[in-house]
Design a protein around this nucleic acid. Sequence first.
DNA 1: TTGCAACATTCCTCTTTCGGAATATACCGG
DNA 2: CCGGTATATTCCGAAAGAGGAATGTTGCAA
Lengths: 128, 128
Amino acid sequence: MELIRIYQCFCDRTRLRILNLLQHGPLCVCHLQRILGEPQVKISKHLAYLRGHQLVESERCANWMVYHLPEEPSELLKRNLACLQDSMREESVFQRDLDRLKEVLDELGADCPACVREHHQHQNSCRS
Amino acid sequence: MELIRIYQCFCDRTRLRILNLLQHGPLCVCHLQRILGEPQVKISKHLAYLRGHQLVESERCANWMVYHLPEEPSELLKRNLACLQDSMREESVFQRDLDRLKEVLDELGADCPACVREHHQHQNSCRS
DNA sequence: TTGCAACATTCCTCTTTCGGAATATACCGG
DNA sequence: CCGGTATATTCCGAAAGAGGAATGTTGCAA
């Protein structure tokens, strides 16, 4: 049942933090690692879990692996990701991660895949 | 984190079926047992799990234990139960359980707590 | 090539979850 | 108090989840 696959992904704190960040655009593992401040193996295994449950997709980009939410999510997934995003607003940890996202993007600068950089530059130019 | 407690409850098929039924009003264990067609110990343990995670509350009513969704759910829980209800519409198993709910209510008739009976009688009179 | 950086996977351990069989508990009617 | 009905708990084994240490893999750059 797809519903259960979705909720299985939602019941770990680290995975929720990852999904929160990916709602704002694609990221590579090194970004996630720095933003979350967790060991590489932990991030990598949770990403594998999410991929196995079809909650994220990934592409290799030169030296990096870029993870993002599914390009064509089902209605079910869309609805539940939207509800999740609302729900996450109430916990400060998720807001702190988003603040940290901006810092880390600046910090790493050009040292990440073009697709990631471009997405977030575009986001910034829209916002400012 | 309350969010995780909620999703932990959502990632088992039997628990989803129970929550689906309880969205329509309080029920006792014997109702759930007959509707779901699962052994008593299984129902009882999932109810204990849900209670431990504060997704349901229970009261003894003479010989029966009546379970229902929290009287004063948090905004978080309300939002997620609403999303769950939308999501469950797409799986036929949940609709079948609701059909079976009516059958079992008739079948058991007066052989259940007054509070359960009254709730569902009221529902019926409203519908018809 | 070689070396390095970014990730993934394997192995191990601890904990949680899930299901069933058996047993216990609570309440009712007589 | 007793028997019966409704429900809970305990004990067991199998499986999944989560984290870390160590090791493998992949791709680029010199």
